[in-house]
Amino acid sequence: MFKVTPNPPDTDSPDTDPASPYESLDSKKLNEAAERALDFYLNPAAIMNNTPRKPSTLYMVAPDVDQEALLVQTCENLASASVMASDIAAMVEGPHRNTLLALQQVIMLGELAVNRMLDNFVPPK
């Protein structure tokens, strides 16, 4: 009786290497993606060293704005945040109220520091 045997695979091509864990090009991409994911969660230093940080330009302070204007804007923003936190704390009871009041106090302390900086600010000549 004659038994049909399949031809052995062509080992000259890297895609058909019998020792390769990749069955196709797609499985290579999947394996690379899995390696990146594992590095991201288990070895974040490898990711950080390989990719330089590029800051986002979506929200950017114009480089020609002077320091006094930035301090004034920061002071106004902190004052608004303080009022908002105080208003929300007035609507809440219990430990959440205490947390909001503590947050409002931290914002107010930041506002005081920025006000002191504005008081001592000497514009460049």
Rank of each mutant, 00 (worst) to 15 (best):
residue 30 L to W: 01
residue 47 I to V: 13
residue 42 L to E: 15
residue 54 K to R: 07
residue 86 S to M: 05
residue 33 A to Q: 11
residue 14 P to V: 10
residue 76 E to L: 13
residue 104 Q to H: 09
residue 118 L to I: 15
residue 47 I to C: 01
residue 29 K to H: 08
residue 112 L to K: 11
residue 119 D to P: 01
residue 95 P to A: 13
residue 75 C to G: 07
residue 10 D to S: 13
residue 39 D to Q: 11
residue 61 V to F: 09
residue 97 R to P: 02
residue 13 S to M: 06
residue 14 P to C: 02
residue 71 L to R: 10
residue 79 A to N: 08
residue 94 G to Q: 09
residue 110 G to R: 06
residue 2 F to S: 08
residue 5 T to S: 11
residue 83 V to C: 03
residue 14 P to L: 06
residue 64 D to E: 15
residue 89 A to F: 02
residue 103 L to R: 05
residue 26 D to E: 13
residue 82 S to R: 08
residue 41 Y to G: 01
residue 40 F to K: 04
residue 107 I to M: 12
residue 91 M to H: 06
residue 94 G to V: 06
residue 122 V to L: 10
residue 87 D to P: 02
residue 34 A to N: 06
residue 9 P to M: 13
residue 110 G to P: 05
residue 73 Q to T: 13
residue 42 L to W: 03
residue 13 S to L: 12
residue 63 P to N: 08
residue 10 D to I: 06
residue 121 F to Y: 15
residue 67 Q to Y: 12
residue 32 E to H: 05
residue 2 F to Y: 08
residue 11 T to V: 06
residue 87 D to G: 10
residue 77 N to Q: 07
residue 117 M to E: 15
residue 94 G to L: 05
residue 59 Y to M: 08
residue 52 P to H: 08
residue 28 K to N: 00
residue 99 T to F: 12
residue 118 L to G: 07
residue 69 A to N: 03
residue 111 E to Q: 15
residue 64 D to R: 05
residue 4 V to K: 03
